[in-house]
């Protein structure tokens, strides 16, 4: 059968909302795009543990510590679901991890910002996980089956992340003047990077029709970003705080909130490795991998020994 027939069958499936499964024929560009997107998503979950892990030992109470540990553990699990989904496309776990360490594969730039105060942990839950959820809910209907299934699992767990963050900020917003100021400061610092998480403007991207056609993605960056702004504007009122954008205002005609322009120079700088924590984050991942080598070796040796014992018995 000529390739264009395969492509037609493939596209028919997508048009009819039939998910693509690992053994199905797929265009090479579809496979590559999914590998790139899923692995970057996986790396984001793993690197995302670092800024939050920073506060586990300094959480203000045992309750907050237990919550934060549970959340960070979830992120590790999310990374694993996604690495597994990625492997179904014919790339090994080690290759994907090597791509992260070499700098070839990226992770969400948001994790290159530092967590300076405890309020940052709340702001990450509310804004960063909130922005992630917008995208992840959409991805539960992405066309590649294993990716969609991983997203369903992740979404089930993710809403706790956002709620605990908002609740944590809510407590601060009702606290002392210092706590209130800390809450507002964290919102001010995380707001713009959170908006950047949705990526460049739609007008900046080419071939967008193709990816929409393949239903890897179902909403554009700008659509998702707008939904996020609309949602946060309402939620920030409950906190009695404000968002750091003087241009934020309701647009009756569009039935959406207008908002200011993102600093794209900053965005591309952080993507290219010049954000506040890029080097630190990547180094932490490399160290974890290299310093953990003896553990991997020991586990393999232990398994070997166990096997020999079982044979002998």
């Amino acid at each position: 059968m000529p390739t264009h027939d395969f492509e037609k069958i493939f596209q028919d499936k997508i048009d009819n909302e039939i998910r693509i499964e690992p053994k199905d024929w797929m265009p090479e560009a579809y496979r590559k795009t999914n590998i790139r997107q899923i692995s970057q998503h996986a790396h984001s979950e793993i690197v995302g543990m670092l800024p939050e892990g920073n506060w586990i030992s300094r959480a203000p109470s045992l309750k907050r510590k237990a919550i934060l540990i549970a959340k960070v553990q979830d992120e590790a699990g999310h990374g694993l679901y996604l690495y597994s989904a990625c492997e179904t496309l014919g790339i090994t776990r080690e290759e994907t991890i090597n791509d992260l360490h070499s700098g070839k594969a990226k992770y969400s730039s948001i994790f290159n910002y530092p967590t300076i105060t405890w309020a940052d942990i709340g702001a990450i839950g509310w804004l960063v996980d909130g922005a992630a959820i917008m995208n992840q809910v959409m991805l539960t209907r992405t066309s590649y089956g294993p990716y969609a299934r991983a997203m369903v699992r992740i979404c089930k767990e993710e809403s706790f992340h956002q709620r605990q963050g908002f609740e944590s900020l809510l407590v601060l917003s009702k606290g002392s003047d210092e706590q209130k100021a800390m809450c507002q400061d964290a919102i001010n610092r995380w707001w713009w990077p959170a908006l950047m998480m949705f990526g460049p403007h739609d007008s900046e991207s080419t071939n967008s029709e193709q990816s929409m056609l393949w239903k890897i993605k179902r909403k554009t960056n700008d659509e998702l970003r707008q939904n996020f702004v609309d949602m946060c504007f309402e939620q920030v009122k409950i906190l009695g705080m404000s968002l750091p954008d003087p241009k934020l205002k309701w647009n009756e005609e569009r039935m959406h909130y207008d908002f200011g322009e993102i600093d794209w120079t900053e965005f591309w700088n952080v993507v290219k490795g010049n954000g506040p924590c890029n080097k630190q984050r990547l180094q932490a991942r490399k160290d974890a991998w290299e310093k953990g080598e003896w553990v991997r070796e020991a586990a393999a040796a232990h398994a070997e020994k166990r096997k020999t014992k079982q044979k002998a018995a």
Binding site: Q37, Q40, H41, E94, K104, N207, K217
Partner: peptide, 30 residues
């Protein structure tokens, strides 16, 4: 098929703008 996707996905940074070299690995997971 020469249809390379250039759309930016969430967390999806295109390689040509990422500023890092491509390192391929043949290592196999144990």
């Amino acid at each position: 098929m020469n249809n390379y996707i250039r759309k930016f996905y969430y967390g999806d940074i295109p390689e040509d703008k990422a500023g890092a070299s491509i390192v391929s690995s043949t290592a196999k997971s144990d």
